[in-house]
Design a protein around this nucleic acid. Sequence first.
DNA 1: CAGCATCCAGTTGGATACTG
DNA 2: CAGTATCCAACTGGATGCTG
Lengths: 127, 127
Amino acid sequence: MAERDDTRAAYLTSVAACPTHRVLDRMGDRWVSLILNQLSGGPRRHGELARAVAGASQKMLTQTLRGLERDGLVARSESGTAARRVEYRLTALGESLMPVMTAVTVWAERHIDEVDAARSAFDAAVS
Amino acid sequence: MAERDDTRAAYLTSVAACPTHRVLDRMGDRWVSLILNQLSGGPRRHGELARAVAGASQKMLTQTLRGLERDGLVARSESGTAARRVEYRLTALGESLMPVMTAVTVWAERHIDEVDAARSAFDAAVS
DNA sequence: CAGCATCCAGTTGGATACTG
DNA sequence: CAGTATCCAACTGGATGCTG
């Protein structure tokens, strides 16, 4: 399909650039919802987050936080020289995203049973 | 870290089971937002979707549709014997998700510039 | 037309070990 | 305590060819 590579590439680019998709991608990152949820309760130290989001490896925790920081959703502040103390908190931009997260959560909790039922039915029909 | 495998595994399971995360995962699937968007305009044939979501490979289109169908968000109906005709449409459950998608879209379009600005600033500071 | 199967490259994310 | 660096297994998603 060499003749259509350009078209395909253009489409892929435009999809990647789609704001909705980009936001969804970020929100869907495995640990983002948990971290954002923690931070919505106020600033948290790195260690606190590590404990609260215990499933995440150290690498993923930092990596995810960096990503959120890069996108301006989370702010990082450092203090202390000996006993280092790093704190993360939501930015105004991050806070503005919370209602959207909440909307997702509300829908999810309200309809997850229907989804599960649909899955069972589907899987049963297939097998 | 063999001693904590159980704990870790339990956490990972609970995260995977988290309704919010599951929904976010589905919504974040690369082609879901585009497909759902198409279907919100009414039923579409497979071919129509293939054209509208031209970036997706045939495999991914079908795979994504199956996933949505499995989760009860989309319904598939077949008709015709010779010239096969397969149509997809949103279920009631799928329609109930659209406002959430819209909320994400609205936030995204409204704030993507801030995100981009934050990124540029972050990247500039790092380098 | 709609869909399935296979192969495979690129990415993701976890384990582990080490630094200031 | 917070973070970095490396290695690597698993998963994702695209290309291609075939079927009813």
